[in-house]
């Protein structure tokens, strides 16, 4: 019996969300009193792999051949399932990242495992039953899922578990997975990454703006504030629908659901569909010129005022504070 965690690399490096994921998987392994094995697919340097030991990984399985250079959903799912069998894992932990959302259901189906998607905290274990909480109804509620299968797959929502150091001696082992005939039918044509930008699902601080900004040409003040805060930018649905901002920034019930430490909403009214996607943010600041805007009802801090005057002032105040 053991716990297997799939560690996704981004161009050969592990991001903070991977260390969160391992810390989480290590806590589950501790609940079972078992070992944690990490599976890495693609090329990652030894030093980077060894960094996983700091968070409690005992063994690292490495699959690093030309075939696996870039992510192919089906092929990677086969590798994970094959590693789960190889390590006799009873629990497989995957990130609920964009790629993870494609992998987890395929891995679960291959293993005949129950899947808890979008987990937000540690499971409770009772005999063979594992109970786990996830957000449902796009953030309007939580659902507690029970997994009763012999093998379980858990997909952890990024940003929902703190990194915990747990120095462990770890060894690297090359692993030869079993793949299926059609695993490589999908061809990756191109990958485009804006490397300097903080990405929305990983961001600890998010600065978001709505129709109150009047037009795309006014986003400079939003980007300036995001920059001083080290934040990602987001927007309401009408803003991306109008093409002022890309769809990838749209948060809410029909957009991305986020739970950053700090969410700053500027010129957004606070419609129920918008709130659904952001209400699990730890702290919410609302800036709106209308004192009756519904968003104020669910915010921790509020400023009633014109965004075009208030936002640059806040940016200045944060600059002054950061020195």
């Amino acid at each position: 019996m053991s716990v297997l965690v799939y560690v996704e690399n981004t161009e050969g490096k592990f991001k903070k969300t991977v260390y969160e994921l391992i810390s989480y998987a290590k806590s589950i392994a501790d609940l079972y009193g078992s070992q944690l094995t990490a599976l890495s697919i693609g090329h990652v340097a030894d030093d980077e792999l060894k960094s996983l030991g700091r968070y409690g990984v005992s063994k690292i399985l490495r699959v690093d051949s030309e075939q696996f250079k870039s992510f192919v959903n089906q092929a990677y799912a086969s590798v994970i399932a094959s590693a789960a069998k190889h390590t006799n894992a009873n629990t497989v932990v995957i990130s609920n990242s964009f790629s993870g959302k494609g992998l987890a259901p395929r891995v679960a189906a291959k293993l005949g495992a129950g899947l808890a998607d979008g987990a937000i905290d540690l499971p409770t274990i009772d005999g063979n039953t594992l109970s786990i909480r996830k957000t449902a109804f796009s953030g309007k509620a939580y659902a507690i899922t029970e997994l009763t299968s012999a093998i379980k797959v858990i997909a952890l929502t990024p940003n929902s578990y703190d990194v915990k150091e747990n120095p462990t001696d770890s060894s690297i082992e090359d692993f030869a997975p079993e793949n299926e005939e059609h695993d490589f039918d999908t061809i990756i044509k191109e990958i485009v990454r804006a490397s300097d930008k903080i990405t929305l699902p990983d961001a600890e601080i998010v600065v978001s703006a709505g129709r109150g900004l009047k037009g795309p040409e006014n986003w400079g003040i939003i980007e300036d504030l995001a920059e001083v805060l080290g934040a990602a930018t987001a927007c309401s649905k009408p803003v991306s629908d109008a093409g002022w901002r890309p769809h990838s920034e749209h948060v809410g019930q029909t957009g991305i659901v986020i739970s950053p430490n700090l969410y700053v909403a500027i010129g957004i009214s606070g419609a129920i569909q918008h709130l659904a996607g952001v209400s699990s943010s730890k702290t919410i600041v609302v800036i709106n010129k209308d004192p009756e805007a519904p968003f104020f009802k669910v915010a921790d801090y509020g400023i009633v005022g014109d965004a075009f005057e208030v936002v640059p002032k806040i940016t200045q105040a944060i600059k002054a504070y950061k020195g």
Partner: peptide, 30 residues
């Protein structure tokens, strides 16, 4: 065969009261 099922729901705890900051005092918000 059933492998996973939802057993219960919870609704999020309501947030505490909002603190307003005057638009002329952004350093207070910080």
């Amino acid at each position: 065969e059933e492998l996973a099922h939802i057993v219960r729901y919870e609704t999020p705890a309501p947030r505490g009261a909002i603190t307003f900051v005057d638009a002329s005092e952004p350093e207070k918000l910080v």
